[in-house]
Design a protein around this nucleic acid. Structure first.
Lengths: 347, 347
DNA sequence: TTGTACGCGTTATCAA
DNA sequence: TTGATAACGCGTACAA
């Protein structure tokens, strides 16, 4: 019924040589000393038959798949596509494929995919997924399984991570807002089950303290995910407060978009009544209405860095991978963050 | 140096049974009649040793990888992530993995990935990449290799495609603009090397003709890609025309964003001076400034449909896959498309 | 109910 | 310079 695969054996027969010779011709290095005419016969036969090597069999034999696995929390978050592209660029250039898995912010799915990827014998793992338990990561380390964390840290593995400098980025946000005169600053934090969520909230607290600004607990909300919907749900309480904030910091751009919706829904406008700042500088941020003030991170670079580190591990050039921290800096755009006086007078 | 893999043989030894018995226990069907105590011994041994089956070896033996390959033109285009999620949902639920490849709008990369995916013996292919030659697709068909096209057609394979109804969507766009009184309508088309680019331009021409509106050739520009940058470059000529259009239709939302930038760069505003409409309704479209009027397409659904069709093919339930056309309808948002009078008077 | 034997498609190693 | 052989890890007819 189903036509039989064309294997190296068929090619060998067609070229009147031994299968092992075909293998040598097709992927042996040059110094292998083969009769030119043999080589040609084999190549011709392979072309004629439309031979396709089986990566499966090769990987089984070589104990290498030349495949990287990547776990991403949510491909819908525009932060990740550029990172993925960076990874893919490097991978492709070095002869690796990428298996991309979207964990949908579910630790269960993370676990499943992690298992599947290891069963598929990927040569290494890029982990951008944020819910994964530190213990799981520790286990990878114990097994000496090559991996690199992207955009998330883990105790005991931050030397294998490409991280955003949340402290610096958040500090710039707070400094900016305070500089504009804001004193009632609200925060819509990311999920506290993730390190990024924790770090950005902690950094905001610390920075406010440094500037001598008190953080009203009523102005802190925690979103259940780094998504627009979660940001919206979390922000509603803030904008409905008896004394609403004059500025809000959303833990990432999607959360900030949710905040924006919440602001508008109660009849307020941004930045006339409430200033807004996000984090990540997703590709469309400048086109939002109004353009979003946010913290820029070098997304594509993070991807290339991570992939480079991973491949170095895999290929045993154990360049002692340094902790890589991606720079983050504030991008002030038009009007999402306005002087506090504006907010005060207009409400 | 590198610790040896734990194989089915190790488990067999630990459980004092034959390797084949281990295989039966671990993935044999229930009716296989195994002594409960044997089963338990094997399972315990496997767990104790931390046995991980090799998907490689299994696939080699089974001639099935339970893996789907997917080619996407540009993961940066927010249209695709939801489609991918739809695909992944179905795939995951049916026990398949997804290898995602970003072709970066390059036909060379497409060809490479296509080869790699087939060498890796994926069970089937989802092709959203738009540059691939019809001949390549015809070859897949000839080889009886399972595939489904997503968001693109191909002569002779439209019965294996999940397509957007460009005609209807574009017609609604034109009708809307004409209804608002616009007569000088500009078009920034997508690359004419893609079927989508061609179709949307042709549909716009046809629809304008139907409405008795003449299309000034000076108001038609072709973007080199479905991207913001390409849209911007193509739109500059239009907005700088001696008599600029009062409305512009961008062939997708990213192109429309590029148009928006071009409009603003010459000191005009949208929609005060020029109305703007896009296509696809990417997730952030409603947050743009101003919110983008665009044609909605059921992105996630397209993904689930495509994956379902593909798996049906693979598993031989040759449900005669119907040509699936995804509905497209206009979503009028706030103010990107305003009455032509506004544009006329304000310029 | 479980063991035997073989094949899936390659490539590395050794021998000729 | 090329051929023969074994092994990568697993699943399954067939035999016991």
């Amino acid at each position: 019924m189903t036509e039989p695969r064309i294997t190296i054996i068929d090619v060998a027969r067609a070229a009147s040589v031994h299968p092992s010779t075909v293998s040598r011709v097709l992927n042996g290095r040059v110094e292998l000393s083969l009769l030119p005419e043999t080589r040609e016969r084999v190549i011709a036969a392979a072309a004629r038959l439309g031979y396709r090597p089986s990566a499966l069999a090769r990987s089984l034999r070589l104990r290498r798949t030349f495949t990287l696995g990547m776990l991403v929390p949510n491909i819908d978050n525009p932060l990740f596509p550029p990172i993925i592209k960076g990874v893919e660029d490097v991978a492709h250039a070095r002869g690796y494929n990428l298996i991309l898995c979207n964990t949908e912010d579910s630790s269960e799915r993370e676990a499943t995919y992690l298992r599947v990827l290891r069963e598929r014998q990927v040569d290494g793992l890029l982990i951008a997924s944020s819910f994964m338990a530190d213990s799981t990561i520790a286990e990878l380390r114990r097994d000496r399984f090559p991996f690199v964390l992207v955009n998330r840290g883990s105790r005991g593995a931050n030397d294998l991570a490409v991280l955003v400098d949340n402290e610096v980025g958040v500090a710039e946000v707070i400094e900016h807002l305070v500089g504009l005169g804001h004193r009632r600053i609200g925060i819509v934090a990311g999920p506290q089950t993730t390190m990024t969520g924790q770090q950005r909230l902690a950094a905001a607290r610390a920075s406010l303290r440094e500037h001598g600004v008190k953080l009203d607990p009523a102005l802190v909300a925690v979103a259940e995910a780094f998504s627009q919907e979660a940001g919206y749900r979390a922000a509603r309480r803030l904008v409905l407060a008896t004394e609403p904030p004059t500025a809000i910091f959303g833990a990432n751009d999607l959360i900030a978009l949710g905040v924006l919706r919440a602001i508008r829904e109660v009849g307020l406008e941004c930045p006339d009544h409430i200033s807004l700042v996000g984090f990540n500088d997703i590709p469309q941020a400048e086109f939002f209405g109004p353009p979003l003030t946010t913290v820029h991170v070098p997304q594509r670079d993070m991807g290339t860095q991570a992939a480079t580190m991973l491949i170095a591990q895999i290929e045993g050039k154990d360049i002692p991978a340094p902790r890589v921290v991606a720079e983050a800096h504030l991008v002030v755009r038009g009007s999402t963050a306005a002087p506090a006086t504006l907010a005060r007078t207009e409400v």
